[in-house]
């Protein structure tokens, strides 16, 4: 499971593939106040990235990989 949904937190783990985009989108629609945990994320597919950009959810934790984090921080401006 590349995304674990627990209550109001969605944890993106390891490599998050394109198929996860739809589920994440639905989850964000039903949980407008949901937050994401990216700490375990090593890479996410552009489609998933796009959902996060459009949804702009709260980010609990950024990826450990500094390179990836820089991109995501720029893309997902925490509200």
């Amino acid at each position: 499971m590349a995304i674990q949904y627990k209550g109001l937190t969605a944890a993106l783990i390891d490599i998050v593939a394109v198929e996860e985009a739809e589920g994440l989108l639905q989850w964000l629609l039903t949980n407008p106040d949901g937050a994401v945990d990216l700490s375990g994320c090593k890479h996410l597919h552009a489609a998933v990235l796009q959902v996060l950009m459009a949804g702009q959810p709260k980010v609990n934790a950024w990826p450990e990989d500094e390179g990836l984090a820089v991109w995501l921080k720029e893309a997902i401006k925490t509200r």
Binding site: L25, A46, A47, V51, M53, G55, W71, E74
Partner: peptide, 23 residues
């Protein structure tokens, strides 16, 4: 250096087609 930017302003989330690349 690099960054990702939306191609247009985002539609409401409910209208988003997540499999159409918009970035």
């Amino acid at each position: 250096w690099g960054r990702v930017v939306p191609r247009t302003t985002w539609p409401p989330l409910s209208d988003l087609d997540c499999y159409r690349c918009m970035i």
